[in-house]
Design a binder for these strands. Structure first.
Length: 511
DNA sequence: ACTGATGCGTC
DNA sequence: GTCGGAC
DNA sequence: GTCCGACGACGCATCAGT
């Protein structure tokens, strides 16, 4: 007996999950697009880990989610492509330049690292990496700070990279990039955890859906979002927390190892209210009503806005379906005041003057384009935004093919683009109709410079491609004046709204 | 101490 | 944030 | 309907280089 206990003890403590096991799972997942299969692969791994080395479970999950700590701790890796390229270069003896060329070709730094590593002859086999070791490495990288931190980060990455075997470099680098790109993300991981725990079944646990909000303890009210965002994010001492945070729970996804996500919201809400106790000013339930008509919802929305809430969450099934502006996951939709007050989508006709090489599934095509409006005054094209969504895969291909015939070496002298330097420049030959939610003063783009702001231009918020305007020549594109007008119009509206609110009277909504 | 570049979170 | 693709 | 990963603007924090 004793021996068995010792073995069990030994087993539990000594065996760390090999990083290769995780990477093998990643590879399996990457090679399918079927979500049930994906979930299955992960569940199997998690079940094995729960059995063999439960101590490694958290680290494994974090690696799957591409995270190094709970979100609220706010620890970040603090590295990006540039640093990674340097590290890969140093670990494999390649130049940054040749690596960059490979990125253009392969569209994925992980793959580049993989091939760089396999092409390199190794004299001896390195000691196998383990999940905790990799996780610890990532955490250390995130902790490096201050003088020479970047160099130390590079060295740490180099060390890990050198210790990599098989397909590990690919996923190591992608982890560092913050993109696993294997078709696995939060929802699926959540499901797999649930499944794996149910397989285990004796674990007591819960998952709540909550929102953290800045809280005024004096007056017991919610503070505006901006206050929340001014919270210090790093090295916070308990003593100097200036902005208190209250957590509002509005849903319960798991309870005592059981998934509730298939239950109705009514049942989930009961589970939430029956099993948790609010703590004044720290944890409470989000206010809610059961509304049966639009009027009730509208007055509740009004109330919520007055209480400094961003808006309401409404269950889709209970609401008039024509009332859906933006679908959210989990059958909920978010209703915000600015939606009711008429957030119209503007549409502009803009000229394509450059492009950016695509990454991931856009490898080989242009992943995004640089757009410009036309300025009559100076007879120039002024950059207004990049655009990377709205086109189908097929359109994307066609665009790439088309614009390859219009590549130019250097930007035309009459292109004014500020800091928005594309990878490739084009002749101004085609006009696109583009939709956006808003116009904004831009630190980057140059549209309508001098008309609204002396040095800053205007850009588009949430730009997306609608269609090609073959009926328009580039000179017929939306002009700087028009852009400036649109921006000014917007300002007028927002001022009027502000004036109405200051009036303090809750007039009827006229929407 | 300042600037520009980079990373990262939020929408 | 928006969007299209795969399921 | 759900999930994923292409891509957007912008503001803030941090670091390297001066």
């Amino acid at each position: 007996m004793i021996v068995i206990v010792i073995i069990f003890f030994f087993y539990n403590f000594k065996i760390s999950v090999p990083y290769a096991a995780l990477c093998k799972t990643f590879e399996n997942i990457e090679n399918t697009t079927k979500r049930i299969k994906i979930q299955d692969y992960l569940t199997k791994l998690l079940v094995a880990i729960i059995k063999l080395s439960p101590d490694n479970l958290l680290e494994t999950i974090y690696l799957c989610l591409n995270r190094i700590c709970p979100e609220y701790e706010g620890l970040e890796l603090g590295i990006g492509e540039t640093i990674l390229i340097k590290a890969i270069g140093e670990a494999t003896g390649r130049s940054a330049k040749s690596i960059k060329i490979d990125i253009e070709k392969q569209g994925d730094l992980g793959n580049v690292a993989q091939t760089s590593k396999s092409n390199q002859k190794t004299l001896f086999k390195p000691k196998p990496l383990t999940v905790p070791a990799v996780f610890k490495g990532l955490k250390e990288i995130a902790m490096f700070t201050g003088n020479q931190s970047q160099t130390r980060k590079i060295n740490k990455i180099k060390g890990l990279l050198i210790a990599c075997n098989g397909n590990e470099p690919k996923y190591l680098i992608r982890s560092l990039e913050g993109k696993l790109r294997i078709g696995l993300a939060e929802q699926t991981v959540l499901m797999s955890i649930g499944q794996a725990i149910i397989a285990k079944s004796d674990v007591t646990s819960f998952v709540l859906d909550c929102e953290a909000v800045a809280w005024d303890k004096e007056n017991n009210c919610i503070l505006p979002f901006q206050v929340l965002s001014t919270r210090k994010r790093k090295n916070v001492e308990t003593g100097d927390i200036a902005v208190q945070v209250c957590v509002f729970a509005f849903d319960c996804l798991y309870l005592n190892g059981k998934s509730l996500i298939k239950k109705t919201f009514k049942e989930r809400r009961e589970a939430l209210h029956n099993n948790f106790v609010p703590i004044e000013g720290e944890f409470t339930f989000a206010k809610n009503i059961n509304a049966s008509n639009i009027e009730e919802i509208q007055s509740f929305l009004e109330q919520s806005v007055n209480d400094s809430c961003e808006g309401l969450m409404i269950k889709t099934l209970e609401v008039d379906s024509s009332y859906e502006p933006s679908k959210r996951s989990r059958n909920w939709l978010k209703v915000k005041k600015d939606y009711i007050s008429g957030g119209i989508g503007d549409s502009l006709d803009l000229v394509v003057i450059g492009a950016y090489t695509g990454r991931g599934k856009r490898t080989g095509s242009y992943g995004g384009y640089l757009l410009a409006c036309y300025d009559n005054e100076n007879e120039e094209y002024q950059s207004i935004c990049k655009i990377g969504t709205g086109f189908s895969d097929e359109q994307l291909e066609k665009h790439t093919e088309f614009f390859k015939q219009h590549i130019i070496n250097k930007p035309k002298p009459y292109y004014r683009v500020g800091d928005a330097k594309p990878d490739i420049w084009f002749d101004a030959v085609q006009v696109w109709e583009v939709k956006c939610a808003d116009l904004s003063i831009s630190p980057v783009h140059q549209a309508a410079v001098g008309l609204v702001d002396p040095v800053k231009g205007i850009s588009l918020r949430f730009p997306r491609f609608l269609r090609i305007r073959d009926d328009k020549t580039p000179e017929m594109a939306t002009t700087s004046e028009q852009v400036a007008d649109m921006y000014n119009q917007q300002v007028v509206i927002s001022k009027n709204n502000a004036a109405n609110q200051n009036g303090g009277v809750d007039d009827d909504f006229e929407y």
